[in-house]
Design a protein around this nucleic acid. Sequence first.
DNA 1: CACAACACGTTTTTT
DNA 2: ACGTGTTGTG
Length: 788
Amino acid sequence: MTTDFLSHLNPSQRQAVEHFCGPLLVIAGAGSGKTRALTYRIANLVLEHHVDPENILAVTFTNKAAKEMKERIERLFAEREAARSHDKPLEALPGHVQTKLRSQVYKTITKDLWIGTFHALCCRILRFDIEKFQDERGRKWTRAFSIFDESDAQSLVKDIIINQLNLDEKKFDPRSVRYAISNAKNKGLSPQEYEKEQPNFRGRVISNVYSVYQDKLAENNAIDFDDLILIPVQLFRQNEQIRAYWHKRFRHILVDEYQDTNRTQYDLIQLLVTNGESASKFEDWNYRSVFVVGDADQSIYSFRMADFTILMGFQHDFGDGLPDDDTRTMVKLQENYRSTENILQLANELIENNTERIDKILKPTRGRGESTFCYRAQDEIDEAEFVIQQMRRLEQMNADLHWGKFAILYRTNAQSRAFEDILVRWGVPYKIVGGLRFYDRKEIKDVLAYLRAIVNPADTLSLLRVINTPRRGVGKSTIESLQKASIELGIPLWEIISDETSVKTLAGRSAKGVSAFAAIIEKHREMLDSVSASEIVQGVLEESGYVRDLKAQGTDEAEDRFQNVQELYNAVLQYEEENEDDKSLVGFLANASLASDLDDTPEEATNVSLMTLHSSKGLEFPIVFLVGLEQGLFPSYRSLDDPAAIEEERRLCYVGITRAQERLFISHARERRLYGNREPASPSLFLAEMPRELMDTNTATSLPSKWTKSLAKGGSQTRTAAPVGAEPSDDLDWSVGDRVMHAQFGVGEITNVFGSGAKATLAIRFDGLPGMKRKILPISDRALQSID
DNA sequence: CACAACACGTTTTTT
DNA sequence: ACGTGTTGTG
């Protein structure tokens, strides 16, 4: 039986899955079946090595990935169980038997596996142990802690800068200060340590804001997303018993998307694995493993402190550090099951231009496929028109294609506009993936604030958010006098609000409203231990008057909000169904704070997907349009002067290309509307790095006949390309195809011209440089001369 | 205390 | 261009 299920794997996958104890780094290329490796490995640990599911910890970065992993493991076990007890494949069994098998698998195996995001897992640990923690300044929290989201954190920092420390908002922009604090936390630095690292005025001030920020969090019995990881790390460092408990518990640790870990997350994993010993000295690998899966080439989140050098350092930290061919602690999954050979070759060649990476190529397992088509558009409207014509043409030509199989990927959200307009015009159904999140909506945050205030009396921020929502006649001045009393007496705001006499003396005419509000919170707080989450939510929605108020407004917008509140109630019900053992409001709130979004509705699977390249990671589509490949847009202008940033943009491009299964279209425009005005645009550096022979284009550098032929069927909407002579060559000394001589690099040919005028840059392929490598040089480079 | 005019910034985003 | 957040007025 066991051998049978391992036969679904290729040799390297099998090597990864069968690895039992010790460290292992799995370099998993795009589309190489890494989720398969992860899930089969967990199954193998349980079935073959009889590991207790309780001893397995699997960490992911998104809830979606965690959910998918859980489902696939459950199915794996259910399939095996079906074959064993019924001698049939799972799908061949009647529905109720399948359900029974699944619930049996859940009860005996998957329920005890810890599979989740770093944040969800740490949240679980903290619900056990946070009361045993005290930070370096003696701050403490209780298990009823609130989790402040990014906007809560933002407004807290802003309040500190303006009201507490009276700093100049211009000099200390709350957003960048908040970013600095978050970065400090992600590196595991306390305010004091941060100050040591930034020994200047700005560093001192930020350290101060950071310290007051932590005071405020503690006052509110709240922590932010960064603390969710950082506090367990600090707790494990200061408390040997707690550390030893979790170290003993999680004997087999798996980490997905390891290239996305930051320093603190790495520290957490290391503490759990080695029980605090240094990683390279740790030797007690009996019945213990750490198994990390990642791909440095898909690291696209350094702007939020992800550090792919952690992945590159795994061999040194935990592994044997031997060369790739001899090592027993690294496996590369390079067979790609997703894309055609043409697409893979393009991706491989592009990423070769990066210097910081682990050598790896994606090996094709499918046919050669069709060439990638690169379209040069006049502007963003023309680009959108090209995309829709191609989609319409392909959809008509192929019976098995429907709109759900197309994706349009762009660098910035603003680019979606032109595509949305045209999709609406042609009546093509589409969905925007990502974008505004459900739990970020005002009405949802309002309701959650009620719930948080009920669970956590110290959560003053939430209390203030809804004390006058809906209107209860509690105005700014009333709130101010209540807050002032709270500060002067040194007691939480809730103590004031819930005390009738205090309210009467402080709130004057508003006293009635304040007391009514306090009564609602109090009443539901008393119900916490005896009543399920949904009942409390229902009670709050009715008695707070929130729903009544929305309905009274009678606008379309209010109706929308009401629908969303209804959705939230549904989410509570769904939570209760999925968490039979913990139907509490506390459980739901943790879940809601850490959830990015509600699940897609299934009908949307038939829509064209529009999303940023970042959102596309982990997804795949038969047909992909990679749009806006223009210098300054993609790569972004913020990365142009930083080689490391350019490499990250290149990885982003690599991610985009490797989303495509069958066909890839790339496009760029000659001019584009940006912040209201038209701006000229030049082709992206990445286009110059893509091999010509793998692409068809509508530009004169390749055969135009090919292009006209392939578009002819699509109708007359597409414009003809301007002849190449119309390049802005009149104000340039150089144009594509010119032979040049460079003092340092020798003879070469110009392959691309970026920008125009004095600040233009040239891409030159020098004959003397190995591997068709190009150099990007400023047009002002004196060492460059023309040769004919 | 509410609404309207105005200034501002604008890569990517999960938890 | 456009949405957000802050200021000013009735």
